[in-house]
Computed example of a mutant assay.
Amino acid sequence: MNTLILKTTSRFLFTLLLLLSVFLLLRGHNEPGGGFIGALVAVGAYALFALAHGLNAARKLLPLPPLRLVGWGLLVALVSALVAFFLDKPLMTGVWFSLFGVKIGTPVVFDIGVYLTVFGALLSAIFGLEESAHTQEGS
């Protein structure tokens, strides 16, 4: 789509949706929300941006390719699950520690891993669908 209103509002909504996504991620271990729903909101933000500005513009906003984010997300989730195991506690038991004066728990770290995994997988699928739609239009 090539409308001025969509292009203008998508920039504002992109930022707003990403902020909402991070809010949902960080509040999720105590209240409704978490890594899964936060990632869905972030994917919606990128899909809207790609719809308004094109796939290449949306890809430039990503720090890593989507499938690489899936790998990092799985690694972060696995590490958070194994922390308790190495402390002779049951697997995936919550462990809290202080990092730079901030108390962080493994449930939050696990949610971050889920966020990255879902975000990368869904964004990869959406980008792939968008690419195939453009390929079919061109033929």
Rank of each mutant, 00 (worst) to 15 (best):
residue 23 F to L: 13
residue 61 L to G: 05
residue 47 A to Y: 13
residue 75 L to D: 00
residue 27 R to Q: 14
residue 112 I to F: 13
residue 112 I to R: 05
residue 107 P to M: 05
residue 94 G to S: 15
residue 78 L to E: 01
residue 86 F to W: 15
residue 93 T to G: 01
residue 109 V to E: 09
residue 33 G to V: 09
residue 53 H to N: 12
residue 95 V to E: 03
residue 92 M to A: 15
residue 102 V to L: 15
residue 61 L to I: 01
residue 77 A to H: 10
residue 83 V to T: 08
residue 39 A to R: 09
residue 79 V to E: 03
residue 33 G to N: 09
residue 96 W to E: 14
residue 115 Y to P: 03
residue 99 L to G: 01
residue 108 V to M: 15
residue 59 R to I: 04
residue 94 G to H: 08
residue 63 P to T: 11
residue 91 L to F: 15
residue 88 D to K: 12
residue 44 G to I: 07
residue 102 V to K: 07
residue 85 F to W: 14
residue 109 V to A: 15
residue 74 L to K: 00
residue 91 L to K: 00
residue 52 A to T: 11
residue 103 K to R: 14
residue 81 A to P: 00
residue 75 L to M: 12
residue 74 L to F: 12
residue 75 L to C: 06
residue 52 A to M: 11
residue 118 V to W: 06
residue 76 V to R: 01
residue 99 L to R: 01
residue 55 L to F: 06
residue 55 L to A: 10
residue 56 N to P: 00
residue 117 T to G: 15
residue 82 L to W: 09
residue 97 F to G: 09
residue 50 A to F: 12
residue 58 A to G: 07
residue 89 K to Q: 15
residue 108 V to W: 04
residue 67 L to Q: 09
residue 113 G to P: 04
residue 112 I to M: 14
residue 87 L to H: 09
residue 121 A to M: 14
residue 25 L to P: 02
residue 61 L to N: 11
residue 57 A to Q: 15
residue 88 D to P: 00
residue 43 V to C: 14
residue 72 W to H: 00
residue 105 G to I: 04
residue 50 A to E: 09
residue 108 V to K: 03
residue 40 L to A: 10
residue 25 L to Q: 05
residue 59 R to V: 01
residue 97 F to I: 06
residue 109 V to F: 12
residue 53 H to I: 02
residue 49 F to A: 11
residue 37 I to C: 03
residue 95 V to S: 02
residue 57 A to M: 10
residue 45 A to M: 08
residue 27 R to H: 11
residue 63 P to G: 11
residue 83 V to M: 05
residue 75 L to A: 14
residue 63 P to F: 12
residue 51 L to E: 12
residue 69 L to E: 04
residue 44 G to K: 07
residue 22 V to Q: 03
residue 62 L to Q: 14
residue 93 T to E: 10
residue 87 L to F: 13
residue 107 P to Q: 07
residue 52 A to H: 12
residue 21 S to T: 01
residue 25 L to G: 02
residue 70 V to A: 06
residue 119 F to W: 03
residue 46 Y to C: 13
residue 68 R to P: 00
residue 65 P to C: 00
residue 47 A to E: 02
residue 23 F to N: 02
residue 79 V to C: 12
residue 80 S to R: 01
residue 73 G to P: 02
residue 26 L to V: 15
residue 108 V to A: 13
residue 66 P to W: 08
residue 23 F to G: 00
residue 34 G to M: 07
residue 63 P to K: 04
residue 106 T to C: 05
residue 56 N to K: 13
residue 72 W to Y: 15
residue 43 V to T: 13
residue 27 R to E: 11
residue 58 A to V: 08
residue 60 K to S: 13
residue 51 L to N: 12
residue 106 T to Y: 07
residue 116 L to G: 05
residue 110 F to P: 00
residue 34 G to Q: 06
residue 108 V to E: 09
residue 59 R to A: 12
residue 46 Y to Q: 08
residue 53 H to S: 03
residue 105 G to V: 03
residue 74 L to D: 00
residue 90 P to V: 06
residue 95 V to Y: 04
